[in-house]
Design a protein around this nucleic acid. Sequence first.
DNA 1: ATAAACACTACGGTTTATTCGAACAATTAT
DNA 2: ATAATTGTTCGAATAAACCGTAGTGTTTAT
Lengths: 300, 300
Amino acid sequence: MKEILNYKHLHYFWAVAREGGVNRAAERLGMSAQTVSGQVSKLEHALGKALFTQQGRNLVLTEAGRVALQFADQIFMLGESLQETLEDDTLGSTVRLAAGITDVLPKTVSYRLLEPVLGGEQRVRLVCTEGAFDELLAELALHRLDVVLADRPVPAGGQQPFVSTLMARCPVMIFGTAKLCSQYREDFPHSLSRAPMLLPTRDNVLRSQLEQWFEEQNIKVDIVGEFEDGALLKTFGRQGVGLFPAPSFQVDDITRQFEVEVVGEVTGVYEHYYAIANRRKLQHSAVETLMRSATEPHER
Amino acid sequence: MKEILNYKHLHYFWAVAREGGVNRAAERLGMSAQTVSGQVSKLEHALGKALFTQQGRNLVLTEAGRVALQFADQIFMLGESLQETLEDDTLGSTVRLAAGITDVLPKTVSYRLLEPVLGGEQRVRLVCTEGAFDELLAELALHRLDVVLADRPVPAGGQQPFVSTLMARCPVMIFGTAKLCSQYREDFPHSLSRAPMLLPTRDNVLRSQLEQWFEEQNIKVDIVGEFEDGALLKTFGRQGVGLFPAPSFQVDDITRQFEVEVVGEVTGVYEHYYAIANRRKLQHSAVETLMRSATEPHER
DNA sequence: ATAAACACTACGGTTTATTCGAACAATTAT
DNA sequence: ATAATTGTTCGAATAAACCGTAGTGTTTAT
């Protein structure tokens, strides 16, 4: 266990280094020189290194001291900055919520999940970032994000600094153009055998679930395309290249936008959406309301 | 006068925010919860803003709290980093001296000025940066440089955070190829009338001094080139394009390197070299020896 | 040579800050 | 309802910081 740095001592050290002497520093600080000298000595002892050496009747920074000064400069700059920022700000009137959204998430889903925080009594300013799952988690750990929305939870380790909350599970449908639909709607799902199919790439959670489902149904589809980007996949589907699966709370979200129709539902398969936040630190009021808004099976 | 931020309080706040509660934080800190709670309250009072609000039986960060947490993250990251850096390092065996060199300074002069610090009893690692005068001063103010070498002092204001020390003054000679020399050496300096001349640009201090000298000597030279870069100027001079002035401690520095000869000395004109450091903080042992090595210490 | 400036140390006493224990209030789980 | 968990408030005890005064040593200015 390491001792925590004494920032008061560091502050005196900083003053001495900047003013160029114990006496000048003490005067500026409104203190006696003995005290300042003593406190700096304690710091040196705590760090195990001399910060100054006496040269003639002045002090001179040692190499360690010069390193320490660099850090101290930054530290106390930040301290002042903190005070100033909190001082004059119009904070509190609006709450800022930094949300990271995994790029595999459909936009409409993102909106549905985040909607509850906007409806609260307090004004919320939403700051949305998109990115890869791992990148977003890193940002989350650094407190640069308040919450991450994803299609999978974190592996739930005991020492994990994150908590995942299941926000919703969304039924998965198979869509296609009107022409394709009329061809495959009958005798769904067995009609899908040999059907031309557009699927997400293998890194997508939905993909493996779908393959398992095909297996169970004893269907062997004809994969005519794989896509990383969900929107691109749907665009190809719209042109009638093949049938495609998509999660959907309300079918008309997709049928309207992409001018397609529903072939059928992938029974028993759901896409799950999770909100991930810093463990034990659900301390963002907006994150709290978000997590609370988690809905159980959202069947319609 | 503003109160200095209490970093101990901030540290407790930080722990509470990270652990997600006063109790957990207190446990980890090895303290009682009452203490932590009280200290955080003091911080809130000092900042004039609530950092937490009670929501149910948990704490939740306010917007101000979230801002504070961002700063605290950085601050204590730096604190730890400081300790680690000082801990295991081989510091002290060698001293690092970050010197900024104004790009108008001749390299040989730079070397001559910096040489004394290398000869000290302590090993010195020299880190040289080149740049414009103003840029280097900015770096100096931020403690990113320890000293700046220039051909001019800072304007010496009372509130100025810098001190300039005259390190040396260097006589100025006129050089030229052997052929040109033989043509103009006789009756120097009056022979220079109409002589082809290469001069530094007007931003150079030496330039105005030279023009004044020409005026005094009642000489009107023929300026065939102006150069920002001293080395480029000399290279042109080497080719016999014209005569050129150059400061020189030892004439053979230039005569040998550029295969030229001396036409004559610019009497009464000297180039001055200054070392500029942070005021009251000549606290770098290497800077001290540097300043001491000045031919005529010139405090202003 | 002498005085002034600067820094470090030591010790007793004072002031301020930190800390804990106990009691209290609010919320959630059983 | 009761117990468990969480956070806060209130003195009293403890620890740290701080100030005098006083003495030592060094270097620089006169």
